[in-house]
Structures are given as structure tokens and as C-alpha cells.
């Protein structure tokens, strides 16, 4: 059954660079991985060439189960581009992942009513297969 609460594939265009490619490669396999500094163990997100805490460059990619809590959100109701009109409303949530130095992932909360979404609500990670080889993180209320 089709997901409710995501944007149509044609408006989702990923343009990874050398720092973000591993994230999207894992996402295509429905795995959430985060870069963690090999020198000081600080997570950094979005992926970046330097550690914000110790300035080291090297990272290891650590898999995270992706469950967390809604830090904040908005319900996008008005289409600023016509291509998304039929998909609205969508809930765009900022989800903080526990144990990651405050890393936050942005994704749609799907298959629910806007009224059911609250700050601090626990959510679980899922994936939206946009097209072959491309998936983006989404969330479901627990």
C-alpha cells in the first residue's frame, strides 16, 4: 500500500558528495549510518570533513537503529511549488537520535494524522523507496 504523507519522487533529488555518499549508500539498503569521529568519538551530522569537537577528519560509520523522539516538527499544508500540491499535507519532523551527541534527522512522519503528532513523541525509523537505489528516512509514531 502506498505511503501516506511523503512527497512525490520527482521532487526528491539527491546530490551526494564524497562526505554524504556513504549515508545514502546505506540508506538505499535501509540502514541508517552516522559518521563518528575516530579520534574523539563525536558524532557529526550532516556528514562533514571535520569533527566539530576536535577537528579530526577520519570517521567510522556507525549503524543506528533510528528510533528517537520528535524534537520539533511542522505540518506543511500549502504548496510553494505545484509539484507537491497533491501530496499535502505532509509532516516534516526533526527527530533527535539518542546516544549520538544530539544528531537530528529530518523526515516525514507517515501514515498518521497531523493532530497525533507532538513534540517529544517517540518514533521509529522506516524508509521511503523513492526510486530504485534511492531511499530517504521517514518515521512512524510508536
Amino acid at each position: 500500500m502506498a505511503l501516506r504523507g511523503v512527497l512525490p519522487p520527482e521532487v526528491i533529488q539527491l546530490t551526494p558528495n564524497v562526505f554524504t555518499q556513504p549515508f545514502w549508500d546505506a540508506a538505499a539498503e535501509h540502514r541508517l549510518v552516522l559518521p563518528r569521529c575516530t579520534a574523539c568519538s563525536a558524532y557529526r551530522f550532516p556528514p562533514a570533513p571535520f569533527c566539530w569537537r576536535c577537528r579530526a577528519q577520519e570517521v567510522e560509520w556507525v549503524q543506528h537503529q533510528g528510533n528517537g523522539a520528535i524534537y520539533s516538527y511542522t505540518v506543511v499544508r500549502h504548496a510553494v511549488i505545484p509539484d507537491v500540491r497533491d501530496a499535502l499535507p505532509v509532516i516534516a519532523a526533526v527527530v533527535e537520535l539518542p546516544g549520538t551527541d544530539g544528531c537530528r534527522i529530518v523526515g516525514n512522519v507517515v501514515d498518521c494524522e497531523p493532530e497525533d503528532v507532538k513534540v517529544d513523541a517517540p518514533v521509529m525509523l522506516d524508509w521511503y523507496d523513492v526510486r530504485a537505489g534511492t531511499a530517504v528516512p521517514i518515521f512512524r509514531l510508536i
Binding site: L14, W24, F45, P46, V80, A92, N108
Partner: peptide, 16 residues
């Protein structure tokens, strides 16, 4: 066009 950093928020509908 979308940036590598924007890739982490635009797919959710944060367009403006």
C-alpha cells in the same frame, strides 16, 4: 539545485 546538505531536509518538504 539541491545541495548535499539540503538533501537531508528537502525530501521532507522543507522547501522555503
Amino acid at each position: 539545485p539541491p545541495s548535499p546538505e539540503g538533501n537531508f531536509i528537502q525530501p521532507a518538504g522543507l522547501h522555503g
